[in-house]
Design a protein around this nucleic acid. Structure first.
Lengths: 334, 334
DNA sequence: TTGTATGCGTTATCAG
DNA sequence: CTGATAACGCATACAA
């Protein structure tokens, strides 16, 4: 920058203003500066600017893991929106571990990020470590997974609605003993999916049967195990709505290995619309979580928080509507 | 930091040295500083340190995309190693687009990253945009995908060996007309996989049949299309080795839809060991790419480059050995 | 072992 | 509209 100033015989202040599109700057000088900047191949030092301004163009994102379609896709949505606005994204994985999540937060804060977007790990049970973020005045946006009880800025999927639709669909196919693979109930997403399942039963005038609701870790093996237990019942289910896709695949594999037909004997539906739902045979009915939109919405919410800095403390929640993709695993009728 | 100095009645220099574990510092003062730092909840500003030292603790990573197991897993490997060494990782996706890749590079350079780890997009055909990185003196490490012709620091998989093993395996199962789905030949990975395929044929004394080698975009649809064409041949193949997993799945689906048995009529093998290989029925034989190791090796190579700064210009290449996972899609014998 | 002084590249303040 | 100057938070060369 000093080079530019010397070359053009103006002050560094002028250079800075020209480059940052400041209002009080002559159009002529501005053009001259921009032109010379190109020629000398000037590279702005974002670090210095961030140090001076106290705000960087870095955005921190923390996810439990990045494998699989869901988080990868949300992150992609965030990144697309962020890079349009000139932000770089630092991605951290908590590996479903609170301790790691805490470290991630420290890392991001000391990297002076402008904001933090997070989906909490499943071992996160309190909000203490987020207090520090607030004290630093760093905008915090939750997405998909949040902790209940604390009012936070968040982008959520209407999990209850998605589960409701999936379960209704199974009931509409003629199933009457619909089982549910439920996830950890302290996480909003699994709690709401369970609630949607219950609501759908009720809308059909059916009493929930606790023996048909299995706690499941949402892994493939977990799904296999839960399905095996359900088959031991004197009155086994004729359908399963799982809160996750991997588990439903496990169930599918077990059913096939026992010669039980899907969907004729047992209909299946999952949640997340992962890639595997299209690879399985039959293809698996699943609820899509609007991943790209969620990422974009999360970034937008972040920018709104920045804009609304200090004006009010109103908590904002964006709720996205899920979409059910009906496939062969649940289609009994035409 | 100024607070700490005032509180303890020492200079900021002392504080700085105590915090950064400098050698000339009294153990007593050091402890005192560390203790007070904890108490006052001191948060180091990495940006300021980076500005002063000219080197940040940020690492830039550019991948074509992050969905699917391969890149997500490599990135995870990088991140694990990097965070142990106190680095944060900025991930960029080029979306297989050179123009985006160029932008990513600019972004990372202006974020003053300490180094850049990259797997080039498939539309990258020259090295011009990497010259700028060299001029900045920023260490550059390539992984998996590189451009041939330029000697660069890179972590690679022995793709030729992996393809060789997979093809040999198919031949050992009794197949004699082994087809190949080949990827873009300007990318080292696909070129080498094709070469491994050819070498394996030769090792069995077989002449390559050009009609059995299909150019394929490595998508599921691409695989379906290539398989359909192969089946039209007067003398169709009895096995396919695909340079990617999605394409082999496409082939599998087509074969099943036509009532052709896998592996009895046509045996299949893919490359990447993606999650879908375990979901397909039958499960698909595939070559594993040692993704986590690749990520770790890439980070290690970066640190070596930093350590060897200015000493020599020797190019380093780390080559990992692939591992063939044999599954039902290719097993004709016991 | 400790302190003083200076600068990293940028922007905000205030005066012209 | 432009310029001089200070400051962001930290790390080093040099002197003590």
């Amino acid at each position: 920058m000093a080079d530019l100033a010397r070359e053009l015989g103006v002050s560094m202040t002028t250079i800075s203003r020209a480059l940052s599109d400041h209002h009080s700057i002559g159009p002529a000088t501005k053009q001259a500066v921009l032109k010379l900047a190109k020629k000398l191949n000037y590279q702005p030092n974002h670090l210095a600017a961030a140090l001076r301004k106290g705000k960087s163009k870095l955005l921190g994102v923390i996810v439990p893991y990045i494998e699989g379609r869901f988080f990868a896709s949300v992150v992609h949505g965030i990144e697309t929106a962020a890079s349009k606005a000139g932000f770089s994204v630092i991605i951290c994985q908590s590996s479903e571990d609170v301790a790691q999540e805490r470290k991630n937060l420290e890392t991001l804060l000391s990297a002076q990020v402008a904001g933090i977007l997070i989906s909490v790990s499943r071992t996160t049970v309190d909000f203490r470590h987020f207090e520090k973020v607030r004290k630093h005045g760093v905008p915090l946006v939750f997405f998909d997974r949040i902790l209940e009880g604390d009012n936070v800025n968040a982008v959520l999927l209407n999990d209850r609605e998605g589960a409701y639709q999936a379960t209704r669909h199974l009931l509409e196919q003629g199933c009457r003993r619909v089982a549910h693979f439920a996830g950890l109930q302290h996480l909003n997403i699994y709690k709401n999916r369970r609630q949607g399942y219950l609501d759908a039963l009720q809308s059909y005038g059916l009493e929930p049967d606790e023996t048909l609701i299995k706690d499941c870790d949402m892994t493939l093996e977990g799904g296999t195990g839960c399905m095996a237990e359900l088959l031991k019942l004197s009155s086994p289910p004729d359908a399963v709505f799982s809160a996750g896709d991997s588990a439903v695949l496990g169930a599918l594999q077990l059913l096939k290995s026992r010669g039980i037909r899907v969907p004729q004997d047992v209909a299946l539906a999952g949640f997340s619309n992962e890639a595997l739902t299209l690879v399985a045979e039959p293809m698996i009915t699943s609820v899509d979580q609007r991943t790209e939109e969620m990422g974009q919405a999360a970034f937008r919410l972040f920018t709104e928080l920045v804009a609304a800095e200090g004006t009010s403390f109103s908590q904002r929640q964006v709720v996205l509507q899920p979409q059910l993709f009906v496939r062969a695993s649940s289609l009994r009728k035409g």
